[in-house]
């Protein structure tokens, strides 16, 4: 099995670290992993995306045109990557800030109110963990146990007291991811 995914949003949303935690958890499960960031002069505010590939085989191209899963966190990324999901693939997005919602009918689309949930939890930095939880509910490619191990490895020790909050965020994401009905949404627009 090979899982090819793209995580795309603004810099500062935790896109790269979400990918890193997934890659780390995959490695702990004995899989081949590849994490390939878009790197550029932009640090915060610009668009950031990362390709993550988990496979039980040798990974060929780290650079892809189409993906099994796209996790989309802003409008620019929606414009760029909705059409990059393979037919039958999965698109997960946070509706916050999205004005043109996805319209494809040949993929499975899910929504999670990550930004809203993170605000309710009182720490917007756990936003990416909510999205990660949502993804893992739909595609359990790595176990939560290994994700938490990955988190512990990638967080500096002075932030380890935040581990329970991150775990809570993952659970929140798992509980609050819902299928998005394109047909229904399109009809509603016309009414």
């Amino acid at each position: 099995m090979t899982q090819e995914m793209i995580i795309a949003g603004f810099g500062g949303q935790g896109v790269l670290s979400m990918g890193k935690i997934l890659a780390y958890a995959g490695m702990l499960q004995g899989e081949e992993v590849c994490w390939m960031p878009s790197y550029g002069p932009e640090m915060r505010g610009g668009t950031a995306n990362v390709t993550v590939i988990l496979s039980d085989d040798r990974i060929s191209s780290p650079y892809l045109k189409v993906y099994d899963t796209a996790i989309i966190l802003n409008q620019q990324s929606m414009d760029k990557f909705e059409n990059a999901v393979k037919p039958g693939g999965i698109l997960i997005y946070d509706p916050n800030g999205i004005v043109s919602h996805p319209t494809r009918k040949d993929i499975r689309i899910f929504r999670v109110d990550g930004y809203k949930l993170a605000t309710e939890m009182g720490n917007r930095k756990v936003f990416n963990m909510i999205l990660l939880g949502a993804f893992l509910k739909i595609r359990p490619v790595v176990t939560i146990k290994n994700v938490l191990k990955g988190l512990k490895e990638s967080l500096p020790e002075r932030y380890h007291h935040l581990l329970p909050l991150n775990e809570e965020a993952i659970t929140k994401g798992m509980e609050n991811v819902f299928p998005y009905d394109v047909e229904k949404a399109l009809t509603a627009e016309h009414v």
């Binding site: 890659a23 590849c34 994490w35 960031p37 790197y39 780290p62």
Partner: peptide, 10 residues
Amino acid sequence: DGLIGQMMEK
């Protein structure tokens, strides 16, 4: 090159 230098693998 920049791709091999910047990407992470095990």
